[in-house]
Structure formats: structure tokens, C-alpha cells
Design a protein around this nucleic acid. Sequence first.
DNA 1: ATGATCATTAGACTGACAGTATAATACGAA
DNA 2: TTCGTATTATACTGTCAGTCTAATGATCAT
Lengths: 296, 296
Amino acid sequence: MNSRKQHVIRKSHELFIERGFQATSIQDILDYSGISKGTFYNYFTSKNELLISIFRELHSKMEQERNELLIGQDPSDINVFVQQFELQMYINKKNRLTTLFEEVLISNDPELKQFLKRAQLKVVEWTYKRFVEIFGEEKKPYLLDCAIMFIGILQQNMKFYVLDHDRHTGISRVVQYSVKRVERIVEELALSKDQLHDPSSLDKWLPDHLTADRTFQEELNEIVNELKTTIRSDKPDDRKYLELINFIQEELLHETNPRPFLLENALQPLINSELFNPKEVGRLSKLVSRFFKKKT
Amino acid sequence: MNSRKQHVIRKSHELFIERGFQATSIQDILDYSGISKGTFYNYFTSKNELLISIFRELHSKMEQERNELLIGQDPSDINVFVQQFELQMYINKKNRLTTLFEEVLISNDPELKQFLKRAQLKVVEWTYKRFVEIFGEEKKPYLLDCAIMFIGILQQNMKFYVLDHDRHTGISRVVQYSVKRVERIVEELALSKDQLHDPSSLDKWLPDHLTADRTFQEELNEIVNELKTTIRSDKPDDRKYLELINFIQEELLHETNPRPFLLENALQPLINSELFNPKEVGRLSKLVSRFFKKKT
DNA sequence: ATGATCATTAGACTGACAGTATAATACGAA
DNA sequence: TTCGTATTATACTGTCAGTCTAATGATCAT
């Protein structure tokens, strides 16, 4: 993306954090970021679209950091989940995301409305998927309920916690408290078998989430998590595979120039092993070659 | 209140329900309710103040209906609580309250902001107090947490439930589901003794809730509930008192012309009985005489 | 270097809106 | 009738998002 446009996004975000969305006029943005009105409306079709750009920018950054917390970790370890949600809460707070969100929640612009709804749904979906990894496939029918309630519990706890403790210390405490509660709810629902929301609704709510807009990162992460679930960390043979998978993930996400031959070498043993579902391994190697094709 | 002003409130509320707050211009309101601009700004100092008036109107109506559900009922019966919250959800939905709420949640008007925050806090407070009645004094330290989380769970469940079931059937199901969850949370917290919010915070959050703005109704209800808690429904002698108390409540709230001598007669046995805390009975009889003094 | 193309600029302009101001009129109580 | 108050119609101000235009600057292939 145009770096000038980036600059406008950053500057206007600063203003929005400081005075809020409605209270910041286009003119303020023009003055503060040193561009003219014409340029602004060349970059963005409206003030609302600028806001969407800010959300997008932040969200993709958050997603990346959130996924990095999983590298080299056990996806079923609930402590990783706690860290991930702490991160999200921290980023939210730092960028006044919730405030900005609320401020335009019901706006007259249907595009913005749609965007925000989608964003919320994606949080639910992500939480649900993580819950499946954490609590196991067999609890699936209740985990969408749990995801939805967890988010409700957490948001509400946050809202009232900050009334007493203005500084953003304590995020960690609130997240941990909320996670503990939801752990018991999962147990309880598995016994009482009481379901409010059917997980298949997710596909209805997010019709295109399978196809178009998945990032490379997201897909890599999904495959890696799936491969990891078949690994048992108590078997010494399997640890070798775990390291290989972690290496591939690291190399692709963090190396400025990932080395194709190293990745080839790392992939080969996975392909040969009977431990994994060949389809999954196939997806991974396809993803890797797609990565290098795009680069050129 | 001026009936003409009432009329404007009703009419503009209709418009807000139909098109939303922001999307309704003052001119729309003037045309639709058939008044002039001058009159409008004679009644309300701003569009925001009109909105506050609408909220107030609705809230006091809701409060009344909600309290009526308690008449003749056991305050510790959780089914009554379920009905009360169903009522609130129903009124919310019918009047698009949540939508209107969200639309102006973060507005630039500090007065409106303050008002909305207070309204939310009052819901939490009311829920907390009801939980104390339902789950018992000994669980008090955890019941503010439970109230906060209950509201979070309920709101979130609602939000996603309506995505699948557009008609407002099903409110009942969602409320019951959410109440069931919070019942288990109460149990669990009583064991784990994990507290996030101290109930004493409520006084800090709502500094004036003890004094000025309590309605006659609210206070009557509080005293009646407290008196009822000392009654055991299994003792036949006590049932007589229960009937007396219910009669007093009914007479004051629903009779167009409550009869002082009947109330006197009903109060006397309560005063004479040693069953009740004399202070509470005293408050009740004071409240009754205050009621008749105001009437004249 | 030349000229074509595209990004950028300043600023005038429109239209919508909240809220103010005012002069004229209706109406009710003394 | 008269005085005061509520109401009306309407013009006005100021703010803001978004459009339009004519001029200026930058880039780049030939």
C-alpha cells in the first residue's frame, strides 16, 4: 500500500484515539496529516472508509502477533489462549478500539455496519476454533455457545473492572478470571448437553470465510495446528516432527528471505512419514510453493 | 408532564424506532408530530435531551411492570427473576432500545454519556440485589461478579440468537438458558471463592442511589421484599402476614384511590407482631403516611 | 529535453443539519 | 379587555461531509 496513504491512516488514527471519530472533522485530518482534501478523497471514498482502513490495518497486525504466540506451542494449552486474548485486549485498549467500535456501531452506512458485524463474527469464530483445539472435538456441539458466552463475560468484566482500576494493569487478571469461568461452563455443558447455538450457524453467518479473504498466515496456521494435533509429545520420535513443523512456520513467517531448499528438506520427512494425513501434508507443501511463486 | 410534550416524545420515539436516531432530523420530528421548531426547543434543549426523555419514560414504565411481577410472589423464586428479565428483554426489543442505546453510546454530549452509563449500572445493581434475594446473603461476595457476567452472557447470547431466529420468539429460551448457566457459576464461585468485583464498588459507581432519585415504588418494593424474607411459607400463622403485606402492596400500587383506613388495619398486626424487625415495619408505615400526604 | 500521464493542491461550492433569533399570532386567566 | 405566556413560521448562523475545478508538480518513456 501507498506509504503516503499509510501515513494518513496512522495520523488520523492518532486523532481518533485522542478525540473520537465523530469529533474529528475531515479538516482536522487534512491539517494534521498535511494533505489536501482532493488527495484524501482520492485515497478514501469517505470518512467511514478511512475508519475501515484503520480497523483492517490494526486487525491484520493483531492477527499476526496473535498467531506468533502459537509458534512452538501446544495449541491445546489453554495458557496460550489466555496470552492470545490478553494480547487482543491490550491492543484494543491501546488503540481505543472498543470505543471507536461503539461510536459507529450503528451508523447509517450499511458498508461500515456490515464490516463491523463481520469483525465481531470473526472473533467468535476464532474463539470457537481455538476452543475446539483446547477442549477437544467431542465437546464441539457446545463450544460455540461457550465462545459466545466467553466473549460476553470477558467484555462485561472488562467494562466494569476499568471503573475501579483505570490503568490498564489488570487485563491479565480479568482474562484469566473469565477463562476460568468458561472452563467450568464447558464441563457443565458437556454434562447437561444443553445447546443454544448450533456451530453450523457459523458458516451461515460468515459465508465466504472459506475462500477469498483468508490470508496466507491464517491458512499456514490452520494446517500447522492440525498437523500438531496428531503429534504426541510423549513419544520421542514425534518430537522430531514437531521441531520440523515449528521450523517451517518460523522460516515462513519471520525470515526476511526464507530459503526454499531448507523448507524442501524439512518437508520431505513429513511427506514420508505415515503419521500424518497425506492430504494435510499436501496442503502444506502446496502452500509453501505458492508462497515462493508469489514472491517472484 | 405536559401532554403535548408527551405526544412529541411518543411520536419521535416512533420515528427513532423506524429510522434510527441519527437518521431522524429535527425537521422530521416537527413535521411528524405537528409542532413548530420553537415549541420543540421550548420543550427540549436539544435532540439528545429528547432522547433522554424517551429513555426515562420507558424505563419508569418498565420498572413498574417489572415490580408488579413480584407482587404476591416469593422474591427468592428464580422463576420470577426469569420472568422479570424476559419482560425487560421484550421491552428492549419492542422499542429498539439496544439499538438506540448503541447508536449514541459514545456521543460527544457528556450529559447523555453519563445518563447511559448510569442506566447500565442500575441494571447491574438491580440484578445484583435480586441475586442476593435469590441465592442468599452468604453468597454476597460473588454475586456482583455473577450479575455482571449474567448480563454479559445474556446480551451476547441474544445478539447471536437473533441472527438465526429473526422473530422475537425465543427470548424466553435465551433468558432461561442464560439463567441456568449463571446458577452453576454461582455454585462454582461459592466453592472457589474467586472474586473479581467487590460489591461495595456499587456504592462508588452509583453514589446517589440511596437518596434522591428513588421512586416511591422502588422503596415500597424493597421494604416489602425485606419483610417477606422473614416469613416462612410453611408456617400457617405466617401466611396471614404474607397476605397482609401483599394486600398493602396491591392497594398502594394498583388502586386508583387507596383507602387509608384499610391500610391502617392491615399495618396494625404487622406492628404488633414480634416476627418482624420493628425498624422495617416502621419504614413501611412511614412510607404509607408519606404517600397520603403527597396526594393531598 | 519533451510531452504525456497521473497525483496533488487550494479553495470554492453544495446541501444537510442542529440550533438560535425574532416578529407575529393565538389563547387563557385576571 | 388586557396582560402574559405558549406557539408559530421563518429567516439566519455555523459546521460539516463531500464534490468540482483549474492549476501545479512529479514521473517516465521516447
